[in-house]
Computed example of a mutant assay.
Amino acid sequence: MAKAAMKGTKKAAAKPAAKAKATTAAKVSAKTAKPAAKATAKAAPKAAANAAPKAAAKAAPKAKAKSAKKPGLKLSMLRPSVNNMTVRVFARAAGFDHAETDAWGLTRTPEFLARNPAHLTPMIEDKSLPRGVLWESCAIMQYLANKYGLDKFYPKAPAKRAMVDSAMFYLIGTLYPYVARATYPALGFPQYAGEVGHSDAHADKKSEAQKAAAAAIAEPLEVFHSFFRDGKPFIGGNNPSIADIRLAATLEFLAVIDYELPKWAKDYMAAIEKKLGKAYAEPAGDVRGYIAHVKAQAAA
């Protein structure tokens, strides 16, 4: 009986001990859980705070791209001119937010001459320029491409840029003078001092000079095809460069004398217009409209 009593006593004592252990464990667990919950609660805002900048950083480029503003540009121009057409096409193709002022009849005014004593268009206004203005179509395109990093139109790589420069200078120094001599008399444009068309030479001599200039166009034109393009779609490669824009605009004038362009030149001009779309078609439309007007007047 004593043994049984002892066993019962031990069992009874074990139960409270087990309960005590369980209670103690529960309390410890509760105490541990509270700090853990607090730590989790504290960590949650930190994690959210850390995640927020990352999410914002990912979203930032998209928001920035949408809010990016186009560079502003003030341009004085003459609609019938291919020199002016060049910069008008470039400004559109490059995405400038430009304002055009028609300077027809204004280039000899005191106000215009005070800013531009050469009385030439196209002309841009830019406060960062030493004199606030810049004329000459090629110089304008080079300046804007350099300022805004428009490598697509004017490559930075020295060798590629040299070819674009060479093509433009060859055009200005060799091809364009022939085009001007051949087309200006028909367009009714005044020619430069010293030119046959500007002199007192007999009309027959002027006509001969005009025909000689038209005949001379074929040789330098072929140089652009065989040398500067060299099997590529454009002088600039797969995309039109500023030299391509200048060349295509120049060739627009030849329509006034019904000059028969070689097939490659026709395809080349069509490819540029297709590539640049409205950026080319709209300014070209002004030149073509003027040429059509001149030809209609001559036929009347």
Results as ranks from 00 to 15, higher is better:
residue 190 P to N: 11
residue 87 V to C: 08
residue 152 K to R: 15
residue 119 H to P: 04
residue 292 A to K: 11
residue 71 P to H: 15
residue 266 K to A: 05
residue 204 D to R: 05
residue 52 A to G: 04
residue 177 P to A: 02
residue 23 T to K: 14
residue 289 G to Y: 00
residue 38 K to H: 07
residue 152 K to W: 05
residue 87 V to Q: 08
residue 132 G to C: 09
residue 247 L to C: 10
residue 41 A to H: 02
residue 291 I to S: 00
residue 270 A to R: 12
residue 9 T to Q: 14
residue 166 S to W: 12
residue 87 V to E: 07
residue 159 A to L: 14
residue 223 V to N: 03
residue 201 A to V: 03
residue 209 A to W: 06
residue 28 V to I: 12
residue 269 M to T: 03
residue 219 E to W: 02
residue 157 A to T: 10
residue 299 A to V: 06
residue 25 A to F: 15
residue 285 G to H: 00
residue 214 A to S: 08
residue 76 S to D: 15
residue 219 E to P: 03
residue 156 K to R: 13
residue 250 T to H: 10
residue 152 K to I: 04
residue 65 A to T: 13
residue 14 A to Q: 14
residue 239 N to K: 09
residue 234 F to N: 09
residue 251 L to R: 09
residue 8 G to P: 00
residue 237 G to Y: 11
residue 222 E to L: 08
residue 30 A to P: 01
residue 271 A to Y: 01
residue 263 K to V: 13
residue 64 K to I: 11
residue 192 Y to Q: 09
residue 291 I to D: 00
residue 85 M to I: 01
residue 34 K to G: 01
residue 106 L to Y: 06
residue 287 V to G: 08
residue 275 K to L: 07
residue 283 P to Q: 02
residue 119 H to S: 14
residue 166 S to G: 13
residue 214 A to D: 01
residue 175 L to R: 05
residue 35 P to T: 05
residue 78 L to R: 08
residue 149 G to S: 06
residue 250 T to F: 08
residue 80 P to W: 10
residue 97 D to Q: 06
residue 38 K to W: 05
residue 130 P to N: 09
residue 265 A to F: 02
residue 229 R to P: 14
residue 124 I to M: 06
residue 207 S to E: 13
residue 251 L to M: 14
residue 113 L to A: 14
residue 60 A to G: 05
residue 172 I to G: 13
residue 95 G to A: 14
residue 12 A to E: 11
residue 137 S to L: 00
residue 151 D to P: 10
residue 146 N to P: 01
residue 249 A to C: 15
residue 71 P to R: 15
residue 207 S to M: 08
residue 41 A to N: 06
residue 168 M to V: 15
residue 8 G to C: 04
residue 181 R to C: 09
residue 241 S to C: 10
residue 235 I to A: 07
residue 268 Y to L: 06
residue 107 T to R: 04
residue 25 A to H: 15
residue 79 R to H: 09
residue 7 K to F: 02
residue 258 D to F: 05
residue 238 N to I: 07
residue 278 K to R: 10
residue 210 Q to W: 06
residue 138 C to E: 07
residue 50 N to W: 03
residue 297 Q to I: 04
residue 227 F to H: 13
residue 243 A to C: 11
residue 72 G to N: 14
residue 107 T to W: 01
residue 209 A to D: 12
residue 298 A to F: 03
residue 118 A to W: 02
residue 300 A to M: 03
residue 10 K to G: 06
residue 108 R to F: 14
residue 24 T to L: 14
residue 181 R to I: 00
residue 207 S to Q: 11
residue 227 F to D: 04
residue 252 E to G: 02
residue 182 A to K: 01
residue 82 V to D: 06
residue 45 P to M: 13
residue 54 K to Q: 12
residue 102 D to H: 10
residue 258 D to K: 10
residue 162 A to R: 08
residue 214 A to Y: 01
residue 184 Y to E: 00
residue 135 W to R: 07
residue 83 N to I: 02
residue 183 T to D: 01
residue 247 L to I: 11
residue 194 G to R: 03
residue 84 N to K: 03
residue 132 G to T: 12
residue 114 A to E: 15
residue 236 G to D: 02
residue 128 S to H: 06
residue 180 A to P: 13
residue 120 L to K: 14
residue 261 L to V: 09
residue 127 K to C: 03
residue 9 T to W: 15
residue 297 Q to P: 03
residue 212 A to P: 00
residue 93 A to M: 07
residue 171 L to T: 05
residue 187 L to W: 05
residue 223 V to G: 01
residue 102 D to S: 12
